[in-house]
């Protein structure tokens, strides 16, 4: 049976992990490779690396980092941040990334999704959507959530699927950082609407929230950062909890 995936997300700046990270037994918690290896050993199903510093001159650092991660890690991983063209993506694939996530650049130029899917396959293209509820509408935001756009969550997700995106990573900005749980209603709707996998993101604070995302939200995967980084939720315990709630997971 296909299991539900648990995905830690690592924010990268200048080749180092950022946000407070409270991992014991790590020689260097700022080293994304060490941290990724620790998560893989704990039973993470996939990893996401978001380069928040990504600028043209720093892409080389990122490509080198991806190579180091791929050399060490034996589970799939996604790389995102600052991807603006096919030329940015090819080196990431060659370095060993399994998927790329795109956000701002494809809102500005939706055809890029078609180009990426045609060149690398849909399974390689994850569309990340940051959205917030405004006047009863889920409004898509770009540039790390700073800039509201004209796009609405559901129609944009549908369009992205039609253009060839293979997976949607949906972050509710309203829930992100609250630790009060994932945004269940829009997740449910996305999962009804789309025939491709949806990753829930934003709001994880307790194992119950993951169970809700899978059972009520019908998410295929759930992503979190700080609760894992600070050791508030440990992946093996989370998975045992999910299993005890009849959610199929990889133990």
């Amino acid at each position: 049976m296909l299991t539900r995936r648990i995905i830690p997300c690592l924010d990268i700046k200048d080749g180092r992990t950022v946000k407070g990270i409270n991992f014991v037994q790590l020689r260097d918690a700022g080293d994304p490779v060490e941290l990724a290896a620790a998560y893989a050993n704990q039973g993470a199903d996939e990893l996401v690396f978001l380069d928040i510093s990504a600028t043209a001159e720093k892409r080389k650092t990122l490509n080198n980092l991806v190579k180091k991660i791929a050399a060490r890690i034996n589970i799939p991983f996604t790389v995102g941040g600052g991807i603006r063209s096919i030329n940015d993506v090819a080196p990431l694939l060659e370095a060993g990334a399994d998927k790329v996530s795109v956000n701002t650049s494809v809102v500005e130029k939706p055809e890029l999704i078609n180009e990426l899917a045609k060149e690398f396959g849909s399974q390689f293209v994850v569309l990340a959507i940051d959205a917030r509820k405004m006047d009863n509408q889920w409004i898509v935001h770009t540039h790390g959530g700073q800039i509201p756009t004209e796009k609405k969550l559901f129609s944009w997700a549908k369009e992205a699927h039609n253009r060839g995106a293979g997976e949607i990573l949906f972050t509710s900005m309203d829930h992100d950082g609250t630790k009060n749980g994932f945004a269940i209603d829009p997740l449910q709707k996305l999962n009804q609407l789309l025939p491709i996998p949806v990753i829930a993101s934003g709001g994880a604070g307790h194992p119950v929230h993951f169970a809700e995302a899978f059972l009520s939200g019908r998410a295929d995967a759930a992503l979190a950062a700080s609760v894992f980084h600070f050791g508030e939720i440990k992946i093996p315990e989370l998975k045992l909890f999910l299993k005890s709630n009849q959610i199929p997971v990889r133990l």
């Binding site: 049976m1 296909l2 589970i75 849909s122 293979g166 295929d220």
Partner: peptide, 30 residues
């Protein structure tokens, strides 16, 4: 959903994949 993405179990294992790996999870994306 399609693509079939994630960890799924091996069943009816015989032949070259060790029968010991029955029910083990492996990563698919296709």
């Amino acid at each position: 959903k399609v693509p079939h993405t994630g960890w799924n179990s091996l069943t009816s294992v015989n032949g070259w994949v060790d029968p010991f790996l029955q029910n083990q999870l492996v990563y698919f994306v296709h």
